[in-house]
Design a protein around this nucleic acid. Structure first.
Lengths: 190, 190
DNA sequence: AAGGTAAGCGAATAATTATTCATTTAAGCG
DNA sequence: CGCTTAAATGAATAATTATTCGCTTACCTT
């Protein structure tokens, strides 16, 4: 008996991400995905029941990935600012390196594909970010404003920075990164 | 002879915007648009040569609208900060009131519909915003950083705020708006 | 008021795209 | 090694969707 190949799922994901970043969710077909992945169209249906499931699975996977790396190297016993900086940098680095996921997730948000359930699971993943900001507020280092508002502000700015960087296709210099972190910090700080 | 009806174009635009905000660019068909607009599918082709042209036209129109209102009430002879505040508020108000345009423009950016030409015209429209930030820099009120970086940061944060507000469907209180303006200002200020 | 012209219509058609399926291929197992 | 079973294939089919077209309706002109 022949077994399913986990690397093939990854191949399909990469193909879909690449195509969505290039042509948007509105521009991809199952045929495009299979061609890009170098497999037959029918094979997509071995791994997913259909286009909807493929996209929901990829969405869930993309969200999970980006959260997973965010707290790498973060140590709650460190002072807040450097800890926050670590997380902020992790997110920025991840988004720059996985630009296609950024675009894909954005496009999915207003699409007929993502189910309420998938959406809800994505929301739950954001909990650690809330806790991080709340810690800063407890230590009087961060403004005493609605936590969700602060997070939204930071994430929006970060996301746009990543997109802008990509369009202008220049690499973000260390200097510019530090500068942008300062913008964020100045915005947040009490 | 019967003449084309400008109000009908507006009707079509509104229908398309509403549907894209609800189901994304990937989720709309010409049939959906005509049904939502209350006209026959064939009539769409009286006003537009096809789906591509319709979407390009709506994109151009959406971008132009949002820029047009931004400088309403701005007076360059006023001090910088209140002037900047006026523009910032105009943008926020417009985006909140025209949420559907925000989503539509975002979805269009990575789509097969928007042509390079349409994209370029949209970019040119942003010139006044650059000038505004540059003025603040000349007056030493705004950080001496890459103007484009500062703009990106602000616009990204604003956009995300609008989206988040919409999802949580609460109206943004005066207090929250002032708070967010302060985040922006603290980020920008030298 | 009548004629001409283009808007408006929506069913029919064309084009595209998702999905299925009969067949082939290849991995695991005895 | 052969046998079994599921993956893999891609052409065929089904479903969806863009676009066309013959016809009707309403507006403008004279």
């Amino acid at each position: 008996m022949k077994l399913k190949d986990d690397r093939k799922v990854e191949l399909i994901y990469q193909a879909a991400l690449k195509l969505v970043a290039r042509k948007g969710l509105a521009g991809i077909t199952m045929g495009d995905i299979s061609r890009e992945a170098g497999i037959a169209t029918g094979t997509l249906y071995v791994y997913f029941t259909g286009k909807d499931e493929l996209i929901n699975a990829l969405f869930a996977c993309s969200r999970a990935n980006s959260v997973q790396v965010a707290f790498r190297g973060y140590d709650a016993s460190q002072p807040f600012k450097p800890g926050f900086r670590t997380v902020w940098m992790n997110i920025l680095r991840y988004k720059l390196q996985h630009f296609e996921e950024v675009v894909f997730v954005e496009q999915c948000f207003h699409s007929p594909y993502i189910t309420a359930e998938t959406r809800e699971k994505a929301r739950e993943l954001a909990a650690p970010f809330f806790e991080l900001i709340e810690r800063g507020q407890q230590e009087q280092l961060v403004k005493q404003a609605d936590t969700s508002l602060l997070l939204t502000f930071i994430m929006g700015a970060l996301n746009e920075l990543v997109k802008q960087t990509h369009y202008s296709n220049e690499t973000l210099s260390k200097r510019k990164i530090d500068l942008t972190f300062n913008l964020c910090w100045d915005a947040l700080k009490a």
